[in-house]
């Protein structure tokens, strides 16, 4: 995906990015008893990343994320898992949840399901962002990563997709009638 040509899109996109994420977090937080939750919030947040990559190009969006999205997903999975394993310490069954009422801003009920949902949120953002980054890559003018280079990536599809670009042959689209 090339960086967007439209100046307006880029200007608006930078602002919308934050608005979309605020809404995504709102969806995440209200999800315990109302429609919403980690999955749908994560999709919203991933949409903001898609918009950024449309406006600024995939490379810059990856730069903004600073880390491999797979690790974001991994962190989310770890968080969700640890939350669900926590009851084992107290001798309770897997996935048992606990609630506390915090006397902040009136009374807010906070429970371990929220932590679990934050984990789901991160998994969805990470996986979707990874998908977009992999699929959005141009395949014509890419050089393959050197073997000692791709080993440093924990990403499944970075290497194979560009494999054809490594050889001298013309871009694959030209071959296919």
């Amino acid at each position: 995906m090339k960086a967007g040509q439209s100046y307006i899109f880029r200007a608006v996109g930078a602002v919308l990015f934050f608005l979309i994420n605020v809404f995504a977090i709102y969806l995440l937080l209200r999800g315990h008893n109302l429609p919403g939750g980690g999955f749908i919030g994560g999709l919203g947040s991933a949409l903001s990343l898609i918009m950024l990559s449309l406006a600024f190009g995939v490379e810059r969006t990856q730069g903004i994320l600073r880390t491999d999205p797979v690790r974001v997903a991994g962190a989310g999975l770890l968080l969700a898992l640890l939350t669900s394993l926590l009851p084992l310490l107290a001798g309770d069954p897997f996935l048992r949840h606990y609630h506390v009422v915090l006397p902040v801003l009136g009374k807010i009920e906070v429970g371990t399901p929220l932590l679990f949902d934050v984990g789901v949120f991160l998994v969805v953002v990470g996986v979707t962002a990874k998908l977009i980054f992999v699929l959005a890559r141009p395949n014509a003018d890419l050089t393959a990563l050197a073997p000692e280079e791709w080993r440093n990536y924990a990403a499944p599809l970075e290497e194979p997709i560009e494999k054809t670009a490594r050889s001298e042959s013309p871009a694959p689209e030209d071959d296919v009638p």
Binding site: V134, L135, L157, P160, I161, K163, T164, P172, V176
Partner: peptide
């Protein structure tokens, strides 16, 4: 999607 895309690139069909 990704499997088909890669098959398309690798096998040129």
């Amino acid at each position: 999607v990704i499997l088909l895309y890669r098959t398309f690139l690798d096998q040129r069909t």
